[in-house]
């Protein structure tokens, strides 16, 4: 068995008396290195105890903090599946606080770290964009939140019109506009004919 040691450590080990009161293992004197190992062990143990030295360790735990979840969908109900999401904090509207993707059903969840209006923007990369503002309020008795979308007539204080009535309204406007345009052109044509007849009469 051979022990690989760093140069500095090796230098310390070799500098110990060659007479060799300590036990020699492949030219490595345990007695002379023991204080160093003990010192490092104590330092690392104290650091781990304080939770400061877990740089490369990973772990997971269930989160009990308030999680805000938003669902993005197309008008008609189809989810904005796997849409790219950007979350902007109440304090910084330029640099995103978090970025990610919605799930297959258009859901996205995040954990706000402060109270205020959090802007969540979804883009499907095909020119469709939806925006939701999550009002995250940390109240004394718990957390209260309200989610409103950028084009939400209910939250704007207007009445929501059922889709069927919107369709009827749209068709009615188009067809009435057509009738109005035809009436206007016929009227101008008649007045033109009258003026022509008056000129001919004179």
């Amino acid at each position: 068995m051979s022990i690989q040691v760093e140069p500095l450590f090796r230098r310390y080990a070799l500098s110990s008396p060659a007479s060799g009161r300590g036990k020699k293992v492949d030219g490595f004197r345990l007695r002379s290195t023991f204080p160093v190992i003990f010192f490092l062990t104590v330092v690392l143990a104290s650091a781990l105890w304080g939770g400061q030295a877990l740089a490369h360790g990973t772990g997971s735990e269930a989160v009990s903090e308030p999680v805000e979840a938003v669902r993005f969908f197309y008008i008609g109900g189809d989810p904005m599946a796997y849409a790219a999401i950007k979350v902007f904090s109440p304090t910084d509207d330029k640099a995103e606080y978090q970025a990610g993707f919605a799930d297959g059903d258009g859901h996205f969840a995040f954990v706000p770290n402060a109270a205020g209006n959090w802007r969540v923007v979804a883009s499907d990369g095909m020119g469709h964009r939806a925006e939701a503002v999550v009002s995250h309020v940390v109240a004394a008795g718990g957390v209260d939140s309200k989610i409103q979308t950028a084009h939400d007539p209910v939250s704007d204080g207007h009445l929501e019109i059922p889709t069927v009535w919107k369709i009827v309204l749209g068709l009615s406007l188009i067809l009435n506009l057509g009738l109005l345009a035809q009436w206007a052109t016929q009227r101008s044509r008649r007045s033109g004919q009258r003026e022509g007849a008056a000129h001919a009469h004179q």
């Binding site: 188009i174 067809l175 057509g178 009738l179 345009a181 035809q182 052109t185 016929q186 044509r189």
Partner: peptide, 8 residues
């Protein structure tokens, strides 16, 4: 003008 209904 004749095409207005078609356009609508």
């Amino acid at each position: 003008p004749e095409k207005i209904p078609h356009v609508a």
